[in-house]
């Protein structure tokens, strides 16, 4: 598709989301999820502008919403994301050793992306997997529990 076709397609998808709500502004979260998917997992300024245009809101308003929620990324991310929960139950189950293993295996600190752009590694707050801790979320899919000794295999799979 040409960029113009892409833009038209995006606007149409957002219109469909807007149509299911009594008030179209409720579609902003769905529109942001969609835009983020289409822009490789993050929201560059042009993505916020596309959402603003489709939602008939200002880019500043869209950014105010996008910046509020942890799952909207306003900085570039790698092709894959790895997230480790370190909240209380995961901490008690040894989450820090999993964090250390990922940092060593990936060669980055939490919050960073590998130099080859393959993996963004983050620490997150409670993911709701406390009963099978520690929880690791790989490309938005839960793996639980993950131990330090499982980390190498996960990284190899992502670098595949």
């Amino acid at each position: 598709m040409t960029p113009a076709e892409n833009a038209a397609h995006f606007r149409q998808r957002v219109e469909e989301i807007k149509a299911v709500y009594p008030d179209s502004r409720s579609a902003i979260m769905g529109a942001l999820h969609l835009a983020q998917r289409e822009h490789g997992g993050w929201l560059p300024p042009e993505a916020l502008e596309e959402v603003a245009e489709a939602m008939e809101l200002t880019p500043a308003y869209v950014q105010s919403v996008a910046s509020f929620y942890d799952m909207y990324q306003l900085e570039p991310v790698g092709r894959h994301t790895v997230e480790v929960c370190t909240n209380l139950s995961c901490a008690l189950a040894g989450a820090q050793s999993v964090v250390d293993a990922f940092e060593q295996e990936l060669g980055v600190r939490a919050g960073e992306t590998t130099e080859d752009g393959a993996v963004t590694f983050r620490i997150v707050e409670c993911a709701g997997g406390c009963g099978s801790a520690p929880v690791v979320v790989v490309d938005h899919r839960y793996r639980e529990p993950v131990r330090a000794e499982d980390v190498q295999e996960i990284v190899e799979e992502l670098r595949g």
């Binding site: 942890d70 370190t86 901490a91 008690l92 989450a95 820090q96 964090v99 600190r109 939490a110 919050g111 983050r122 620490i123 997150v124 707050e125």
Partner: peptide, 10 residues
Amino acid sequence: IDGIVAPSDQ
């Protein structure tokens, strides 16, 4: 839980 890192640290 020594050295546990939180999102606000990273």
